[in-house]
Computed example of a mutant assay.
Amino acid sequence: MNSAIRQIPLDPVPHHHAHDFHQVVIGLHGQADFEIEGLGGSVSTLTGCIVPANQRHSYAGNGENRQLIIDLPRDAICLTGHHHELSALFDAPAFFELDKPLKNYLGFLLEELQLLDSTQSDVSLQHERLTSTLLGSLHTRLAGPQYTRGRTLNLAALDRYIDTHLESALRVSDLAAEVCLSEGHFTQCFGEQTGMSPWQYVMQRRLCAAKRLLLKTHLPLIEIAALTGFSNQSALSNAFRRAYGHPPSRLRTTSTPGTKPANFAR
Rank of each mutant, 00 (worst) to 15 (best):
S3L: 08
I5V: 05
R6T: 06
P9K: 04
D11I: 10
H15M: 13
H16M: 10
H16C: 11
D20V: 04
D20G: 08
F21D: 03
F21C: 10
F21Q: 09
V25C: 05
H29T: 07
F34A: 00
L39G: 06
T45C: 07
C49W: 08
A53W: 05
S58C: 05
G61Q: 05
N65T: 03
R66H: 05
Q67L: 15
L68P: 09
L68W: 01
L68G: 04
I69F: 02
R74P: 01
D75Q: 08
I77P: 05
L79V: 06
H82V: 14
L86Y: 15
L89W: 10
L89F: 06
D91K: 15
P93V: 07
D99A: 07
N104D: 14
Y105H: 02
L106M: 13
G107C: 02
E111F: 08
E111I: 03
E112M: 14
Q114C: 10
Q120N: 11
Q120K: 14
Q126S: 11
E128M: 01
L130Q: 12
L135C: 11
G136H: 09
S137E: 15
T140F: 09
T140W: 12
R141M: 15
P145A: 15
Q146R: 14
Q146S: 14
R151K: 15
R151S: 03
L153M: 08
R160A: 11
I162E: 03
I162F: 01
D163R: 15
T164H: 12
L166E: 03
L166C: 00
E167R: 14
S168I: 03
A169V: 03
L170G: 00
R171W: 09
S173Y: 11
D174I: 00
A176Y: 10
A177W: 03
A177M: 07
E183C: 08
F190W: 09
M196Q: 15
M196H: 14
A210C: 08
R212D: 14
L215W: 06
K216R: 08
K216N: 11
H218M: 08
L221K: 01
E223D: 13
A226W: 09
A226R: 13
S234T: 12
S234M: 12
A235N: 12
S237F: 00
F240I: 01
R242T: 15
H246N: 00
P247V: 06
S249C: 09
R252N: 11
T259P: 02
K260N: 03
A265F: 10
A265Q: 13
